[in-house]
Amino acid sequence: MTLLLPTLAAAIALRVNYTGDPADGTRTRDRDAIWLGHAWVDGRKTDKDVTALAARLRTTGIRDRVR
C-alpha cells in the first residue's frame, strides 16, 4: 500500500495534466526538427555541408530565436 498510493497519485496527476486539446502552435508541422548525426560534431562535415544545411533550414519552421 505504501508504494501503491504514491504511484497511483502520480498516474492520476499525469493523466489530468495531459487532458484536453493542445494550444495553438504546439502541434508539429513535420518541418520543425532535423536529426543531425555525430558527423556534425566530430569534424567530418565541411563548410560546404554547413552551407547546404543552412539552405535546408531556411525551408523549415526551425529558428534559432523566437520571432
Score class of each variant (00 low, 15 high):
residue 1 M to N: 13
residue 1 M to W: 13
residue 1 M to S: 14
residue 1 M to V: 13
residue 2 T to P: 07
residue 2 T to E: 15
residue 2 T to Y: 11
residue 3 L to Q: 14
residue 3 L to V: 11
residue 4 L to P: 00
residue 5 L to A: 07
residue 7 T to N: 14
residue 7 T to V: 09
residue 10 A to E: 05
residue 11 A to T: 11
residue 12 I to F: 08
residue 13 A to L: 10
residue 14 L to N: 10
residue 15 R to Q: 10
residue 17 N to G: 04
residue 20 G to F: 05
residue 20 G to Y: 09
residue 21 D to M: 14
residue 22 P to F: 05
residue 22 P to N: 04
residue 23 A to C: 03
residue 23 A to H: 01
residue 24 D to Y: 02
residue 25 G to V: 02
residue 25 G to D: 04
residue 26 T to G: 05
residue 27 R to M: 03
residue 28 T to C: 10
residue 28 T to V: 00
residue 28 T to R: 13
residue 28 T to E: 05
residue 29 R to Y: 12
residue 30 D to F: 07
residue 30 D to I: 03
residue 30 D to H: 05
residue 31 R to W: 10
residue 31 R to S: 09
residue 31 R to L: 15
residue 32 D to F: 04
residue 34 I to Q: 09
residue 34 I to N: 00
residue 35 W to R: 13
residue 38 H to Q: 08
residue 39 A to W: 00
residue 41 V to A: 15
residue 41 V to S: 12
residue 42 D to R: 15
residue 43 G to E: 07
residue 43 G to R: 12
residue 43 G to H: 11
residue 44 R to S: 15
residue 44 R to P: 01
residue 46 T to D: 06
residue 46 T to H: 08
residue 47 D to H: 12
residue 48 K to E: 14
residue 48 K to L: 01
residue 49 D to Q: 09
residue 51 T to Q: 14
residue 51 T to D: 12
residue 53 L to W: 09
residue 55 A to E: 15
residue 55 A to T: 12
residue 57 L to W: 06
residue 58 R to Y: 03
residue 59 T to E: 08
residue 60 T to N: 04
residue 62 I to L: 02
residue 64 D to S: 13
residue 65 R to A: 07
residue 66 V to F: 06
residue 67 R to F: 00
